[in-house]
Amino acid sequence: MDVYYSDHFVLPLPQGHRFPMSKYRLLRESLSTVPGLSFHEAPAASDTQLLLAHDPLYVTKVISGTLDAREQREIGFPWSTEMVERSRRSVGATIAACQSAFESGVGVSLAGGTHHAYREKGSGFCVFNDAAVAARVLQRTLGVRRIAIIDLDVHQGNGSAAIFRHDPTVFTLSLHGDKNFPFRKEPSDLDVALPDACDDQTYLAALGQALSNLDQRFNADFLIFLAGADPHEGDRLGRLKLTQQGLASRDEFVFSYALTRRLPLMICMAGGYGTNIETTVSVHRQTVCLAFEHYQKYAQQSVVE
């Protein structure tokens, strides 16, 4: 199974910054001993690819370093050439993982999930919206018609919702904390707002209903799954109470949905801000390992057919 990483591209952050930059390297290192995973450094997304989902003026300002102080504050990162390169590579990892999934059934990006980026601005540690760009690349270059974005980060995918608001070819589904960031939500095609301290049972019941709703309303050809670690009970920004086993069940719900319908599936990591970074890495690692099990089932099903 192809796994794309971009952790060699690190942006300089002020001391004490709450973004867990090291989790990406730690995750790749923790997965390096898992048999069957094929690791690839992410290519950089091109300007042409970024412009499929982003406003030309915004892309130009990011690349040229002309974002003003307010725009940089909203993103949450100070501008640097390293920020630009890391953002390109994060999007490139998701594009490459989608292309791999189109060919083999499953692809994984150890980055991405930058769902707070709008067409014309960045926000919430998100410079470019990797899922939005990758969806457009799939449609333009591989002829994929209808894409469902299953966003299970604890924060609502407001940027994705806004980008695809009037597009019937992309369905945005978001399960998220009702009282968490962003405090002004954008309407997704399907939003499921969860209360603080939501537990495994409540979450999984809501997810099952959401996937059933998706099935009734949209005939997808491809799935993009944002597998955030931040619904975990140990996350300092999450406010939900899912256990690690609960998150395993969450992932298996999505993988089973994809397998039953023979849908190609791309998984990216999205958020995770554990009080202990090792916990966040463990949750993400679990997702990738379960994705590999799904990849094997998908391959076996293809042989039988």
Rank of each mutant, 00 (worst) to 15 (best):
G122K: 03
E120H: 15
I150A: 05
K121Y: 15
R136A: 06
I147M: 14
L142M: 12
T141F: 06
V137F: 09
R136E: 12
I149D: 10
R136N: 13
K121L: 02
A132C: 01
D130V: 11
Q139M: 04
R145C: 13
G124P: 06
V137G: 09
A135W: 07
N129C: 00
V137D: 09
I147A: 10
D151P: 05
F128S: 08
E120T: 09
T141P: 02
G143C: 10
G124Q: 10
F128M: 09
I149M: 08
R146M: 08
R140K: 14
V127D: 00
R136F: 05
D153V: 00
S123H: 15
G124N: 01
F128G: 07
K121A: 15
V137K: 10
V137A: 06
R146A: 03
V137S: 02
R140G: 01
L138F: 09
K121P: 06
V133Y: 06
R136H: 01
D130A: 05
L138N: 02
G124L: 00
K121C: 09
V154E: 04
R146W: 07
R140N: 15
F125T: 00
R146S: 13
R140T: 13
L152Q: 14
D130R: 07
A148F: 04
N129R: 06
F125N: 03
F125A: 09
V133L: 11
L142K: 13
K121I: 01
L142Y: 12
S123M: 08
I150L: 14
R146I: 11
D130M: 03
V133T: 04
F128W: 11
L142R: 12
F125K: 04
C126S: 14
I149N: 08
V144K: 10
E120P: 14
A148I: 02
I149K: 12
L138R: 04
G122D: 11
A135M: 11
A131H: 14
L142I: 09
V144E: 11
L138Q: 05
A135S: 14
L138Y: 07
G143F: 04
L142C: 14
R140Q: 15
A148Y: 03
G143M: 10
N129L: 05
S123L: 12
L138V: 00
A132I: 13
D153Y: 00
V127H: 10
A135I: 00
A132V: 07
R146P: 09
A134Q: 02
A134D: 07
G124S: 06
V133W: 08
K121Q: 13
V127F: 01
I150R: 03
Q139H: 04
S123D: 15
R146E: 09
L142G: 03
A132K: 01
D130C: 01
R145Q: 15
I150H: 01
I149T: 07
F128R: 01
L142F: 03
N129D: 01
C126K: 00
V127L: 02
I147Q: 06
G143A: 11
I150G: 04
G122F: 12
R145V: 08
N129Y: 09
Q139I: 06
A134H: 08
I149F: 12
F128P: 05
L142A: 00
G122I: 04
Q139Y: 14
V127S: 04
F128Q: 08
I147H: 08
V144L: 00
L152H: 01
D130P: 08
Q139G: 09
G122T: 02
T141A: 10
G143K: 05
A134T: 00
S123E: 06
E120C: 12
